[in-house]
Structure formats: C-alpha cells, structure tokens
Design a protein around this nucleic acid. Sequence first.
DNA 1: TATGAATGAGCCTTCATTCAT
DNA 2: AATGAATGAAGGCTCATTCAT
Lengths: 222, 222, 222, 222
Amino acid sequence: MAQANEDTQGGTPARDRELRARGKRTMRKLLDAGVEVFSKKGFHAARVDDIVKAARTSHGTFYLYFSNKDDLIEALASDVAEQMAGLADSLGEVTPDDAGRRELRAWLDRFSEVYERSGPIIGAWTAAETEKSDLGRIGTDLLGGFAVSLGRRIAAGAPELDAAAAAIALVAMIERYHYYAISGMLGAGQKVDRGAVLDTLAAVTHASLFGEARTRPAVHAR
Amino acid sequence: MAQANEDTQGGTPARDRELRARGKRTMRKLLDAGVEVFSKKGFHAARVDDIVKAARTSHGTFYLYFSNKDDLIEALASDVAEQMAGLADSLGEVTPDDAGRRELRAWLDRFSEVYERSGPIIGAWTAAETEKSDLGRIGTDLLGGFAVSLGRRIAAGAPELDAAAAAIALVAMIERYHYYAISGMLGAGQKVDRGAVLDTLAAVTHASLFGEARTRPAVHAR
Amino acid sequence: MAQANEDTQGGTPARDRELRARGKRTMRKLLDAGVEVFSKKGFHAARVDDIVKAARTSHGTFYLYFSNKDDLIEALASDVAEQMAGLADSLGEVTPDDAGRRELRAWLDRFSEVYERSGPIIGAWTAAETEKSDLGRIGTDLLGGFAVSLGRRIAAGAPELDAAAAAIALVAMIERYHYYAISGMLGAGQKVDRGAVLDTLAAVTHASLFGEARTRPAVHAR
Amino acid sequence: MAQANEDTQGGTPARDRELRARGKRTMRKLLDAGVEVFSKKGFHAARVDDIVKAARTSHGTFYLYFSNKDDLIEALASDVAEQMAGLADSLGEVTPDDAGRRELRAWLDRFSEVYERSGPIIGAWTAAETEKSDLGRIGTDLLGGFAVSLGRRIAAGAPELDAAAAAIALVAMIERYHYYAISGMLGAGQKVDRGAVLDTLAAVTHASLFGEARTRPAVHAR
DNA sequence: TATGAATGAGCCTTCATTCAT
DNA sequence: AATGAATGAAGGCTCATTCAT
C-alpha cells in the first residue's frame, strides 16, 4: 500500500552497477518496505531486520542495494525533496482577490496529497538527522528552501510584505497542520473533514497576506 | 547554565522516599544535566553516561532518582507542560483592534522566552515518544492542548471563526517558527531580529483572525 | 603484471573436468588475479570479490574453478613449492674455498629472483594456515623442507658441522632478509643495493660454515 | 599459565580512568586471556568471545578496558616491545675472542626466554598489522629497531664489517629459528636440546662476524 | 560456461540497567 | 547515599558460498 515513488533512485551500492530486471524488482521491494517500516515505526525504531522482512528478502541483500539504514532513508528522502520542489514550482500567482485564494486552495490540495504520502518519510528523515548531528538540517532545509521558493511566488502578489518571513511562517503552519493531521492528533475522537481543513488553511493564509479573514467554521473540536 | 525549573519534580524512585538536603542537591544536578545533555544531543543520542558525567555523579546514583532515561525526560517535560499551561492561561482577550494585537504581541514575547528555554526539551520529549510508540503523543498533545486552551481565548474575540482549527494552525505556525529559529535555520547567513520576528508573527496571526494584514517587513533575508 | 607460473594447476573443481581453451583462459585469469590480490592485501584481507573483479569475471565463475579461497591459495602455493624444490636441487656443492662462496652467491641470485615473485604468496599462504589451524604448517614446512634439502648439500662441503641445524638457521636468515627487503623495511630512507646485500648474505653464510668472515661493507645505512 | 607481564598497561578506555583493585584484577584477567587466546589461535581467529570466556567475564566488560581487539593486542605488544628494547640494551660488547662468544651465548639465553613467552604475541601482532594495512610495520619495526640496536653493539667489536646489514641478517636468523622452534617445526619427531641449539646459533653468529666456525654438532636430526 | 543475485551465519560493538561494596 | 564494575540482550554489517537463469 505505502509505496515509494516509481523512479526513486537506489542507495550508493546500487548506483555503482547496472541493475537487471530482478535487481530492480528487489530494490523496489526494499524501497517500499522502507516507506512502510519507517512510516510505522520511525527511523530509530525501524530495524534493518524489519525492513528486510517486510521486503521478504535477506539481510545480506539489503546491503547489496543500500550501504546502511541512513542510505535508505536518504534515497527515500531525496525523492520526496524532488516532489516538494515540483510542488513549490507549481504554485501560480497568488493575487489578493478570490482567484488568488482559489489558487492557494488548489495548491493546498496538491500539497495535502503529497504530504499524506511523504509526511512519514519526512518525519523519519528529520529524526534520522536529529539523531546523528546536533540538530536536524536537511529535513529542515527542505521545508526551508520550500518556503523560500514559495515566498517568491507570494512576493509577486503582496510585494509590500516581508515575503520570506511570512512564507516561512505559513509553510510552518501548513506543514505542522498536516503533520498533526497525520499523527492522529486531530482525528482522535473527532471527524475531520479534509476539505474543510484545507479551506480554513487557505483562508487563514490568504487573510494573513491580504487581510479579509471571514471564514466559515471548518473543524468542530469535541 | 541550562537549568531545569527550580521546583521540578524527581522521577519515580525519588518520589517514593523523603529526600534530605544532599539528596535534593543530587537530584537537582541530574535534572540540570538532563536539560543540558538532552538539549545538546537529543533524546536518543543522549547517553545515561553523558548525563551522569555532566552531573558529576555515578550510574548507580542516577537510578536512585530516576527509574530510567524516560523517567528523567518525563520529569523534565511535565515541568515544561506546566509552564506551557500557565502560558496559555496568561493570554488575555484578543480583540480585533490594535489593543488585541498588542496583547498578542506581548504574549508572544513570553512564549518566546519560555520556548527558548524549553524548546529543546520539547524536541527531545517528542523524539522520545516517537521512538517508543508508533507515533508521538504527549509532545503533540502538549501543543495540542495548548492550542485548545489558546483557542478558547481567541474564540472570545472572534466568535464566528472556527477557533479550534485556527488556533491549532496558529500555534503550529508559532511553534515551528521558533523551532526553526532555535535550530539555526533562520540564522544561517542572516541577522534575525527577534523583536521584528515577533512583530511579524503577531501581525500575521492577528490578520488571519481579523483581516488587515498590512505590516511592515520584519526580516530582511540576506 | 604479477603473474602465476605458466603451468600452475587449477583448484579441485577444475581438475574434475576437461578444460577447453576458454576455460583455461578463465582459470589463468583467476590465478593471476589471485597472485595480484593476495600479494597486495594478504590472504585474510583479500576478498573473493576483489579477485573476481581483478579477473574481470563473476563470483559464480570463481567457484567453477576453485572450491573456495583456500583452494586458490593452495593452487598458487603448490606451484611455489615446486619452484622452491627445484631451487634447492639447483644448489651445487658448497666448498670451503672461494668457488664454494661463488656457488652460494650464484644460488642466492636465483633464490632472490624466485622469492621476489613468490614471497608475497608464501606470506599469504602462511597467513592462511595460521588463520585456520592452531599454527601454520605448510608454509613453514616448505621452508623447512627446503632447508633440509639445502642442508644435505651443505653437509657434503662441511661434514663436521651440524648441517641440519645450520641450514635451518641460514635459510631462516636468508628468507627473513628477503622478507624484510620486500616488506620495505630495508628500503625506508636508504638505498639498498641488491647485489651488495646478496654479497653480504653469501659472505656471512659461507663464513658461518667455514670461518673467514672478512667482508667489505655492503649496505650503507642512511 | 601463559601470562602477560605484571605491569602491562591497559587499553585506551582503561587509561582514561582510575582503576580500583577489582578493576585491575579484571584487566589482568583480560590481558592474560588475550595472551592465551592469541597464542593458541592467532589474531584473526581469536574471537572477542573466546577472550571473554577465557577471562570468565562478559562481553561488555571487555569493552570497558579495551576499545577493541586491536587495542588489546597493542597493549600486549607494546609490553613486548619494551622487553625487547631492554633485551637489546643488555647485550655487552661482543669481542672476537671466546669471551665475546660467551657474551653472545648468554644473551641468546635471555632472548630465548623472552621469546618463548612473547613469540606468540609477536606473531599475532604481526598478523594483526598484516591484516589491516598492506604490509605489517610495527612488528617488523620492532625486530628491525632491535637489530639496529644490536648492530651498534656488534659494531664496537667488528668495525670493519657492515654492522647494520649483518645485524639484521643475524637477528632474522635468531628470530626465525626461535619461531620455528615454537611453531613446533623443529620438534616434530625429533628431540631438540635447547642449549645445544643456542650453542649453534651463538657459534654461527660469532663465526659470521669474526670467522672461525669450528663448532661441534648441536642438533641431531632423527 | 558465465553471471548477477541471494543468502545467512557469524562477528563486533553499544549501552541501559543491575549489582556489590 | 554513593559509586565503580559487571552484565547481556540487541543490532548493524560483512562476506564466503550457493542459486537460478
């Protein structure tokens, strides 16, 4: 069910040689297993053994395609990074009028979809980096660069605002909101209507850029 | 330097007996060491050995006060939780007018201060939970409950808006923004003026609630 | 460049069937690769993978010709053993006079040449045995038997001396000296003249057998 | 039975802290176990597990005193190196007369004793280095430096000979002879009289330096 | 014959937790 | 109350050897 992107690249060892059909299939199984296990258990708790079992292959085989757990999450993450980059580019001009808001709303729809698939990987990735170095970098950079890219678009529509700062804030909001949604926080004991949530986010975002925040209720807590 | 709150409670073993002066001092050293080490290395990378060394005490002693690593981070975290609760309560009514914005701004100042001290602990705590169970709960709950509490205040000022949803979104924004700030993402290569950042956050937040988002630039990228 | 002897035998599996031209070529590539890799990395550090890569063939193919890594080093070593046997036979009578010394000197020249080619293999072989059983045998036996054979020759020239004991001692000396030379110990920071070294060895050996050790300096340290 | 020198130093981790009586005892058990296991199986074949079992302690404890297998062999070897250095210093002047030969003979006695105890460690040590880098160094250096030191002594007695070259050759001879003796090669099926062997070595060595190699048989093969 | 792929036993190392003094 | 020492269950990774095409 959970699946890596079709053309996700393999890890370091896999890139050093030509893969045949069978090899490609195995690598794919491992990538998919990686998504599944990392999503379910997070980076740290995920054992190579879990991944290998999920992929119905052996321990040794894993290291034929990835040099270690990090290598796998990186392969997975770099794919997500690409998707995110594409997503940022796909945001059209955001104008102060209702068309601008609709543009934002449509974009959020796409973001939501991508995030639902990749959110867990981003989480695992961030954790991986946090565990290694003093503080996470790439995972943060991803959203950061994403925000910058987004900021440029916004700047075109609301030049007098500090686009960079606002964009970061808004991306933070959007990302976390989705994170909460995925981690079940919003769904515990309450029905959340995805469309309504996105409406609210679009409204809040648009309003924070151009004023006018009169929205209808979206989520009913408790 | 980094220090736990004065009246932070100890772990399970410590609560089962009466602590004398010396015992209290030792526990305090361990709590402080916990803040220091968890902040610097995160939960997973933090070794009991690191903590014990930072506290200039021994392994055996550690387990005299805390039943395990989790117990320590929980002691630390529950303290943070209390502070956060207090913080949420301290937000006065947020009105659509400029007074409301100033209220928000002042509150952000307090939040910022608390977060700077406790952010790393929240991060470590979240990680601890993510590593154990399937997905983090308490760390998220903390901010979630925090948002709810905040939402109620906001509701008083902007009843027609879905306060719960908006509050969560805004808390998400505020929290992440601070997280980025702490993790150095915002500071790499650019001077960030804390006051200006808070101005922007206050403006964006207020605007998203009541419209009117005409703010002056706060952060100058590059 | 480093190459196995022309008519080195293959491993067990290769001897069980008739090799065609192509097969012979492949086996040869593997033998040469073996010499190259074992020489460079020693037995233990040499991976089957290294050998296979050096021979530009595959893992599966390797086991078509040799039943395992040991089998390969043994094939290589038994070849060396033969050469050594021939070498021992080639030593003429060593008389107390100058002709005896010249005979020794000429023989050392041949030894030197063979050792330069095969020394690394002997080393790898010895290591292989040391790693397996409690203590090396064949590698030692080789030089031991070699010494015995040499001893007999010497005995003819100096019957009153304990030929066996002396021969072993002298072979030990000669072998180690060459080993040191190969392993670079003698060459670090000083130019070593091979001819001069052999002169010294011949002189010392001859003198230890028949007295008269007045030699001119051979190596100038520093 | 096989035992490390009384004041052998511990490994890296052990040197970073103060050891109490119990700790010292444990470290000693590990050092002794190291000698025993390395001697019996050689460096590569020796498992940390074997050592730990021989020392009747646990896996974790091992790493409390040595950072790894290498660390242990190094601790053991550096001790040997010291003994060897002392040995080299202990050689008095070697004169052409019979007193010189007796001096040599007495020294060989001491060498023999030390080698019997430490030979296996030197072997393991050399193997350790051969396995790691391209070619062994320290193990070789040890004997090399040893030879140099010895060479100086000899130089005093036979100035016209190339002392450095000759010393290396002689040390090579002496060392290997002992190595063969230990590895059982000389003892298989024949009674070797240690005293007689040392007599021969002394005679051969002395003769090679000053002529006069008229010795009585030392070893009777078969 | 040849080969890419798969396997899994085996080994090293870490570290939270318990023990004995 | 304090502490140094000990423990052992995990877990990551390697690599000789076998398999399937």
